[in-house]
């Protein structure tokens, strides 16, 4: 296997050439663009990328330009995992027949929350069940941003989107975020992890682990979208940190079904007083502005209650004892 040495230092990262190149047309403060750059920096050798339709596909491949310094394929919205299946199958047989000029080629499938939670979940579930050797990366900006901020299965409870607006009778999205990483763990797949770009080293290490594992790996990456979230483009990394510190988006990994907290979330489990209240994460995001109105107090309480419940559930899964601050 042609694996490049990786020391996970800032110097190494800076020295490694970019594979997701500058010049793409993402917005200022785009979380996914940072996530993509980091992920491609963490690859270990020859890699083929396939990507679902979505904002990152659109901003990175506008013909005749491209941001991709690796072979890259886009076919449709719901096909990221099925494309990966086809690529991996082709690589396998071509190698067997002596028609592949590489010892090994990694396959990464990118999809947004729409292409993962909703329209792409069937293809993803099928590809994982079949055990293809690929890394699926969900970049979760929590709505259909490419088409203009419509709610998805990944949109959090209470968030206002263009199809779940904060109206006079309905205060944003009433449903809860689908626990997609848990669903993937339930597939008994070898590697599932969540990551947030503020913790870049944690994210990149998980990319590498996902590539190294034999069989399918799933990486759920938190990816703030200033346009969709109505948030300050300068604060995308700050929200990436607050989401973890408030336990709205804890970081963890499941290796062969064994679940454990990653360091940033582990520190909070050890020192619960460091757990920030959800309103610190929610405030400043225009999509949650209505939550802070007096008539929606119940909603804010509900967001906190659900966040706590899911955090405690995760702690139990990770063999941690829930502690109170």
């Amino acid at each position: 296997m042609t694996t490049q040495e990786w020391k996970f230092t800032a110097k190494d990262i800076a020295e490694k050439p970019d594979l997701f190149l500058a010049g793409h047309r993402a917005c200022a403060g785009c979380g996914p663009a940072t996530v993509f750059r980091m992920i491609m920096k963490a690859t270990r050798g020859p890699t083929i990328v396939t990507e679902a339709t979505g904002c990152m596909e659109v901003v990175s491949s506008i013909y005749p330009y491209t941001s991709w310094a690796v072979p890259w394929l886009h076919t449709a919205f719901e096909t990221s995992a099925s494309n990966a299946s086809g690529i991996e199958a082709a690589l396998k047989i071509m190698k067997k027949k002596g028609r592949l000029n590489h010892e090994h080629v990694d396959v990464i499938a990118f999809a947004g929350d729409g292409g993962t939670y909703d329209i792409g979940i069937q293809a993803l579930s099928g590809a994982v069940e079949r055990g293809h050797d690929f890394l699926f990366v969900l970049y979760d900006n929590e709505a259909y941003m490419n088409t203009g901020i419509q709610r998805s299965g990944g949109t959090p409870h209470g968030a206002a989107t263009t199809t779940s607006p904060a109206g006079k009778s309905i205060p944003g999205k009433l449903e809860y975020k689908k626990p997609i990483a848990d669903i993937m763990v339930a597939h008994n797949m070898p590697y599932v992890a969540t990551a947030s770009p503020y913790y870049w080293k944690d994210l990149m290490t998980k990319v590498r682990k996902g590539l190294e594992v034999e069989g399918p790996a799933f990486l759920h990456v938190f990816a703030p979208c200033p346009r969709g979230w109505r948030s300050d483009p300068a604060k995308s990394m700050e929200y990436s940190k607050l989401a973890v510190e408030s336990c709205v988006f804890p970081v963890w990994e499941s290796v062969n079904g064994h679940c454990q907290l990653s360091i940033p979330s582990k520190l909070i489990s050890l020192a619960p007083q460091k757990k920030r209240p959800v309103d610190e994460y929610l405030k400043g995001q225009g999509r949650f502005r209505h939550i802070f109105k007096p008539q929606n107090k119940k909603l804010l309480v509900d967001v906190q209650r659900m966040t706590d419940a899911r955090w405690e559930c995760l702690l139990r899964k990770c063999g941690e004892t829930p502690k109170t601050a």
Partner: peptide
């Protein structure tokens, strides 16, 4: 595969490879 949609997507991707 788990559907014809994926059958065609996988065929396209394999062919592209």
């Amino acid at each position: 595969v788990e559907s014809e949609h994926s059958a065609m997507a996988a065929s396209i991707a394999a062919s592209a490879t």
